[in-house]
Amino acid sequence: MKRAALFVIAGPVGIVAYGLVRLWGRSDGAYGPGFDWQAAHLVALAGMVCFVPGVLALARLLPGSPWRTGVVAGALVGLAATMVQFGADIVEGLLAEDRTEMSRLAADFKDIPGVEVAFYDVVPQLFFVGLLVLTGMLAARRRLPWWSVPLLLAGIVLPVVTLDLLPIGGLCMALALAPALPLVQQREEPAEPSVAVH
């Protein structure tokens, strides 16, 4: 699989892995701080990083326009905010000795003016909105099937209901974006060299 296509699918797979590691960590009733907390959030952070080239690869399947640029920019800003959120969770897990102290550190971080809006409540949602709009644009141009849009929406909404549904949500996202993989791979294929006729 070509690199760009790999990134398109690696982002959702990161969400699936995050959800599975989180469920494993919660199975003993003592999730965080510790190895399970760090592993889950590192996997999630890696997934968010993979979404950056993945979103750019999907955007290249559309003709250039100010609308496409705005949607991609919003998605990337949301991704950056999400990465900060996961990075903060990782740092808090490293500094805290127990769950109570970790919660206190998280509260202290959120008490900084603008942090909760920028990295938790509002800006991170731009990624999901941007990805959904981008998927709709691809479906409108038949680069993706129509069902990719509701399937992606389900993948976004399910973890909002409960984070225990993260693995299913990530799987829905992967299935929604998977039909674009051949097109992304095709775009990466080098052009056939022209042969001069003398």
Rank of each mutant, 00 (worst) to 15 (best):
S194M: 11
L175T: 08
V72F: 07
P113V: 03
P190R: 05
A178T: 09
E188S: 14
L56S: 12
G11M: 05
S65R: 02
I156D: 00
D36K: 06
Q125T: 01
G19C: 02
L131C: 00
W147K: 01
F127T: 02
L94K: 00
G47A: 08
W147E: 00
Y120E: 12
A73I: 10
E97Y: 04
V77S: 03
L23E: 09
A40S: 12
L6I: 12
L62S: 04
R60W: 03
V49T: 05
L62R: 06
G54I: 13
P167S: 05
W67A: 15
S65V: 07
V197T: 12
E116R: 14
E192M: 06
P182S: 05
P66H: 09
V55F: 09
S148G: 09
A40K: 01
A180K: 05
G74C: 07
L165W: 09
V117R: 12
R143E: 15
A39H: 03
A81E: 01
P159A: 02
T162V: 11
P124V: 08
A139P: 03
Q185C: 10
D108H: 14
G14L: 09
G34Q: 04
R60H: 10
I90T: 02
W67S: 11
V84C: 10
A180Q: 04
A106G: 14
A118C: 03
F51Y: 15
D164F: 00
V71A: 03
Q38T: 15
W37A: 00
L132P: 01
M48R: 02
A118K: 01
A174N: 09
A81L: 01
L20M: 11
A96Q: 01
F128D: 00
A191R: 14
Q186H: 11
M48W: 11
M137K: 01
G19S: 03
L153T: 09
P12L: 07
L126A: 13
A154Q: 04
V16I: 15
K2Y: 04
M102I: 01
L76V: 12
R104F: 01
G54N: 10
A46L: 15
G136I: 06
A73F: 14
V8H: 06
F51E: 09
L131E: 03
A139M: 05
V55Q: 00
T135R: 04
Y120F: 13
D108A: 15
V161L: 14
P33L: 08
T82M: 13
T162Y: 08
L183D: 13
V197K: 08
K2E: 11
A178F: 09
R26T: 06
L61M: 07
V122Q: 03
D121W: 15
G54F: 11
Q85N: 14
L58G: 09
V115C: 06
A88H: 11
I112H: 05
V21D: 00
L45H: 04
A39T: 13
P159G: 02
W146I: 03
P193C: 05
E188H: 10
L105K: 09
L61V: 04
E189H: 12
L171V: 12
P150I: 12
V49Y: 04
P193S: 11
E92L: 03
G47E: 04
L153D: 00
P182C: 07
D121R: 15
V55P: 00
V13P: 02
I15N: 07
L166W: 13
E116I: 10
Y31S: 00
D36V: 00
E189M: 14
M1R: 11
R142V: 08
